[in-house]
């Protein structure tokens, strides 16, 4: 049994301190997923807090043999999907509140100019992701920000693997189309799967 499982077992036995450790460990991945899904820092904060509250209340249902991150992000994704469906109207805002949202800086960024271009592209891609249907959005976020395999996405979103493939295919096509419409001469120099969330 690893350290994380020990904390989880302690939390299952009612230790608030152990669950606080879990919150501390997973706050960034959960918050990031909520932010990418909902598009706004304030709603993302609220959704991330609610995700941990739900995880705390339903921790007895967690199967210790499954990866905890998948279980937790599954709760977050389902909560965000429900919230988006209730909201109905999609949000296209790309404005970020500097007081509440922080991006992890890239320590290997070679030039400020390159970094600025990348920053613009990140904003562009964030805005484009907001235009996707809620479940497609969750699949894309899990694939690109968390390096989840199609099987893991299927488990987290209660879908079949073929449904996940189909959703990713459709979402990539939509994003490519939007990119073509909005982008000018963007060029990104980066290896695939360089910055996973974990």
């Amino acid at each position: 049994m690893n350290e994380e499982q020990t904390w989880i077992l302690q939390a299952k036995n009612g230790s608030d301190e152990a669950f606080a450790y879990i919150v501390e460990t997973y706050q960034s991945p959960v918050y990031n997923l909520c932010y990418r899904m909902l598009g706004e820092p304030e709603t993302a904060e609220d959704a991330a807090q609610e995700t941990f509250l739900r995880a705390y209340q339903h921790l007895h249902r967690y199967d210790i043999k499954r990866p905890f991150a998948t279980w937790l992000l599954s709760i977050a994704a389902h909560y965000c999907i429900d919230r988006l469906r209730r909201r109905k109207l999609p949000i296209f805002s790309v404005d970020e509140d500097e007081e509440t949202t922080f991006e992890i800086p890239d320590a290997q960024a070679p030039h400020p100019e390159t970094e600025a271009v990348h920053g613009e592209q990140r904003e562009q891609i964030h805005a484009m992701v907001q235009s996707l249907e809620a479940t497609d959005r969750a699949a894309i976020v899990m694939r690109y920000w968390y390096d989840f395999s199609e099987i893991e996405i299927a488990e987290a979103l209660n879908l079949t693997v073929s449904a996940v493939k189909s959703r990713l295919h459709r979402a990539r096509k939509q994003l490519g189309k939007l990119w073509q419409e909005t982008s000018t001469t963007a060029h990104v120099e980066r290896s695939p799967y360089e910055s996973p969330a974990f």
Partner: peptide
């Protein structure tokens, strides 16, 4: 296809946003 490739790369270059 160029737009598809660029959007794929932009997605992969996206960073993790952390809470306050």
């Amino acid at each position: 296809c160029s737009a598809l490739a660029e959007s794929n790369l932009a997605l992969r270059s996206a960073r993790l946003v952390v809470p306050a």
